[in-house]
């Protein structure tokens, strides 16, 4: 699974410090292995968003404020957002475990304070993931995303930590075979 170069979708706006229990309330952790079921309840804990997931069109883009995804380490937070059909999460900043989890899953996220401030709910966005450019087709604006360190970009491009580990395990097996 490799990343698309460009994604396009409608923006859903959220505020600062949206925590993982709002992204996916802990009671749904019983569905930890079921992305579709998790997706149905994504963002349900954010007041006024109890039925939010039902309104998402596949490919839409979530735009959060600062410290997006703070709280628990549960990977079901980005999994639920992906399960709801969101193609990309843009935020002013991310809490670190949410950030790690998304990169490890090969799920695209972008850090862009500019976009987080300027984008309004419903704006049509076109995002060049390779260049890190967010075009607001509704407003005619353009925002830059911050560049990630090379290793993270490589992980994302590769499809996350799973293919990386597979490769490393294979190298170890080969080394062991050579030593015989």
């Amino acid at each position: 699974m490799s990343l698309p170069k460009v994604v396009r979708g409608r923006a859903w706006k959220f505020g600062d410090n949206i925590d993982t229990d709002q992204i996916i309330p802990a009671k749904y952790a019983i569905y930890s292995l079921d992305e579709t079921e998790l997706g149905k309840h994504a963002m349900e804990g954010v007041p006024g968003h109890e039925t939010w997931a039902g309104g998402v069109t596949r490919g839409d883009i979530l735009v959060g404020g600062s410290n997006f995804g703070c709280g628990s380490s549960r990977e079901i937070a980005p999994v639920a957002i992906r399960g709801a059909g969101i193609s990309l999460v843009v935020a002013d900043s991310f809490a670190r475990i949410f950030f790690r989890n998304a990169i490890n899953m090969g799920y695209p996220i972008l850090q862009s304070p500019q976009a987080a401030e300027a984008v309004e709910e419903g704006d049509e966005l076109e995002v060049d993931l390779e260049e890190g450019i967010i075009r607001n087709l509704t407003k005619g604006d353009e925002y830059r995303a911050e560049a990630f360190p090379q290793f993270m970009t490589d992980l994302l491009k590769m499809g996350g930590l799973v293919p990386w580990v597979r490769k490393r395990l294979e190298e170890r097996r080969q080394r062991a075979a050579v030593r015989g």
């Binding site: 380490s73 549960r74 990977e75 475990i97 790690r100 989890n101 490890n104 899953m105 996350g160 930590l161 799973v162 990386w164 580990v165 490393r168 395990l169």
Partner: peptide, 14 residues
């Protein structure tokens, strides 16, 4: 530090 499940899978494997 706290990590996610894919992280943990990586640690368990490697």
């Amino acid at each position: 530090t706290g990590i996610g499940s894919t992280d943990l899978a990586c640690v368990l494997a490697l």
